[in-house]
Amino acid sequence: MRIIWTEKAEKQLNQIFEYIASDSSLYAHRTVGQIIEEVESILSHPRKGRMVPEYERDNIREVFHHPYRIIYLLKDETIEILSVIHGARLLPDDLK
Rank of each mutant, 00 (worst) to 15 (best):
R2P: 00
I3C: 12
A9G: 07
E10Y: 05
Q12A: 06
L13I: 05
Q15S: 13
Q15N: 15
F17G: 07
F17W: 14
E18T: 12
Y19C: 06
A21S: 15
A21V: 10
S24Q: 12
S25D: 12
S25K: 15
L26V: 14
L26I: 14
T31R: 06
V32D: 07
V32N: 07
G33Y: 11
Q34G: 09
I35R: 06
I35F: 06
E37S: 15
E38C: 10
E38K: 14
E38F: 00
V39R: 05
V39M: 05
E40I: 09
E40A: 11
E40L: 14
E40P: 02
S41A: 11
I42L: 05
L43Q: 11
L43H: 07
S44N: 13
H45C: 08
P46Y: 04
P46R: 08
K48R: 13
K48G: 11
G49T: 02
G49F: 02
V52K: 02
V52D: 04
E56C: 04
E56G: 03
E56K: 12
R61G: 02
R61S: 02
F64S: 12
H65S: 01
H66W: 11
H66K: 12
Y68V: 02
I70K: 04
I71E: 00
I71W: 01
I71T: 01
Y72I: 04
Y72W: 03
L73F: 14
K75L: 14
K75T: 08
E77Q: 15
I79F: 10
E80K: 14
I81T: 11
L82T: 03
S83R: 04
V84P: 02
I85K: 01
I85V: 15
A88S: 13
R89Y: 02
L90R: 09
L90W: 04
P92F: 11
P92W: 12
P92M: 10
D93T: 03
D93W: 03
D93F: 07
D93N: 08
L95E: 04
